[in-house]
Write a protein that binds this DNA or RNA. Structure first.
Lengths: 389, 389
DNA sequence: CCCAATTTAGTTAAATTAATTAAGTTGGTA
DNA sequence: TACCAACTTAATTAATTTAACTAAATTGGG
């Protein structure tokens, strides 16, 4: 229960101004005041603080509109840096990025199974150390580490509760990394991190609600409402992949029948292709399906189109429940966007109940393979840009 | 974008104190200060205002804990009254209630089809006038009218966009009633109103997220997060009834296949019973199914149990997406709670992915047939108790 | 072309709001 | 009487707002 204090009042306004600058830079103090309804002195005093903190800087003068020229403000992107980690089921990728999401350095390691908690942590530490060594000059400008971890995560504790493909449990990521690097560490589920990253770096402007869905090895999702991740009562919201869409459908790894994931995950698609297409080799991969479809093989195209339809059904269910402003899709399966996306849209258009639901904007992430990594980065930016206590 | 102002600061604290009194009355100023972390002078000054506004009153002195006896505070329930309207597809029910949800007067009218917008509005006006006449002494203590309307509602405008069973569109409920009675009028979808009512009057304490599901003629739902209704980007969140759970399932009135509603709405259950049970009469009603099951007829019991399983699947999907703290069920179908609820719980327990999801509390509304009416009442109480601007 | 009027940008200082801190007062128990 | 909890009052503080100001540009009339 957040009390009404002076601190709250100020942090709310600080956050409003900072986000206005972030989404509308370059922008003048006067323009901020006009758009946010804050008074000019309030804007000036908070901007002054932000400049002192080096989060914001003045740039050139803007064009006059019949009076004194405005001083334009920008986020001082390279004043601070953040380390982002994407800890997937197969590899760990790390980046060093600035406040604008620009990546300066990166590396990654494959995870060899079997693996222990200690080995996993060691790989994380090793890769982060490598990043730090490569750019020693900015070492003291790094404000923290964001980790996007697959599986179920306890955000408060910063531990990975269940990491399915690695077959690990209770990895104290936050504790270990904070001790090693003496930096703030935030850990979050990968799909949720991707959702946050998309809302920060996806160029969506000031969107009020957005869902990001990652379709790859598994199917995960994250919900962003008013710029913040929605976690649910017990931190487990967004398990979109195990939504039942067919009570008599194929068996899923979770034991239930007809989960979305049992239809549209990478392995589910490969399985379906092998079953339906006689000529399919036993070693068939998702990438090969995409290539065959691209080469014009009708049988493979059909598989992908069917995948699009099922995803469309799942998304229609999601739209009817959550009614987000936008849905952004990412993950390996969406590499076949060309074949899948039109069928997703068509299905939503057919099934949605109301005109509003039909109009929900569905796109593929513009951040490509870095969507989750930038999500990891954004896990820390939230602390800097949304200092609502 | 809500600015940080003194008004915000104060209204936040006012709301915190008011809700603390509401959920923990009788409670002393000192106790409020302790539990909310607000300072004693802040609590005293706000309480003073609330007493002047007659929303709160002092009651007896409490027990001393080694010092001066505390003055206990209560919501001054009968200082203000609210009119609640449940405008369903078949009838319109109205109540006059106080701030504690106690109902003082009620009436209802059946809706005869076909009906026009004007006739519908006239019935609403007539019933509300009747309520007002019966208790003229408190007329000037009425603060407003809350309308829980079935179908799709535009909350901002207070119009019913689509009223399916009445076959009406664009009914300007708010505008008409405000003009007629010169009172604040809030209009909301019925399932959402029920959700809000449940969170206010259901005795759940300070629950942070809750979903209410109404299963009757149709299947609707409302989501309450942090004491507020979640509307979604275009006011259409919560269309739980048209969640696809079986892509090859029975056809639904919306045109899609396998919507939850096509399995578990009152008419869907009757239809299934008629198909499955040879001896079922053509005139079979939902009530008769309940009675037969209650009398021990295995065939009917099975129908209800199956209904419970399908609802369970739908709720599992909902839990995985939204992860609410509690789920409350209402509506005509839930009259057969005895047969349905155990199977809902069993299904969730079987299908839920994580231990947390399995533990989601699922109950039937304790408010009975008045759940939606009290929801309509709560539509106005929010304005009084949550004056966050 | 010059200069006064106007417009826009931003700052400063006083007024205001409402919380907090510190120091009572009240009314009880042991 | 000592002490303690439950308030209240007065002074302090933080932060916004109002109003008045400085700064710098455009506009348009003579």
């Amino acid at each position: 229960m957040q009390r009404g204090t002076f601190e709250l009042m100020k942090s709310v306004n600080k956050s409003i101004i900072l986000n206005k600058i972030r989404t509308s830079a370059p922008i003048s103090r006067a323009q901020i005041a006009k758009e946010t309804k804050l008074t000019p002195p309030t804007v000036s005093s908070i901007v002054k603080e932000l400049i002192e903190q080096e989060i914001v800087r003045e740039s050139s003068l803007g064009e006059s509109k019949g009076g004194r020229k405005p001083t334009m403000l920008l986020i001082n992107s390279d004043a601070f840096y953040v380390i982002g980690v994407d800890a997937g089921p197969e590899n760990v990728a790390c980046v060093l990025a600035d406040l604008s999401g620009k990546i300066y350095e990166r590396n990654s390691s494959r995870l060899e199974l079997p693996i222990t908690n200690e080995q996993f942590i060691e790989i994380l530490k090793g890769n982060i150390h490598k990043l730090l060594q490569s750019l020693t000059t900015i070492k003291d400008k790094i404000i923290g580490i964001g980790v996007a971890m697959h599986g179920v995560v306890d955000v408060e504790e910063g531990t990975s509760l269940i990491a399915p493909n690695l077959n690990l449990r209770n990895i104290p990521i936050k504790a270990e990394l904070e001790q090693e690097f003496n930096l703030v560490v935030n850990v979050e589920n990968d799909a949720r991190a991707m959702a946050l990253g998309e809302s920060w770096f996806g160029g969506h402007g000031e969107v009020d609600s957005m869902v990001a869905v990652n379709i790859g090895r598994g199917v995960g999702s994250g919900v962003v409402v008013n710029g913040k991740l929605y976690h649910g009562a017990q931190d487990i919201a967004g398990e979109f992949g195990h939504m039942t869409v067919d009570i008599n459908g194929p068996e899923c790894s979770c034991g239930n029948r007809g989960c979305l994931q049992a239809f549209v995950s990478g392995s589910a698609i490969v399985k379906k292709a092998k079953t339906n297409i006689q000529s399919a080799p036993d070693s068939l991969t998702g990438e090969e399906i995409y290539k065959s479809a691209h080469a014009g093989d009708g049988a493979y195209i059909e598989i992908l189109e069917y995948t699009g339809q099922i995803i469309g059904i799942g998304l229609t269910n999601l739209i009817h429940l959550i009614n987000p402003e936008k849905i952004v899709l990412g993950g390996g399966v969406m590499k076949s966007e060309k074949f899948i996306l039109p069928f997703i849209k068509q299905t939503i258009d057919q099934m949605a109940l109301t005109p509003e639901a039909k109009l929900t904007e569905v796109t593929v992430t513009s951040l490509g393979d870095d969507a989750t990594l930038l999500g990891a980065v954004s896990l820390l930016l939230v602390e800097l840009f949304d200092p609502v206590i």
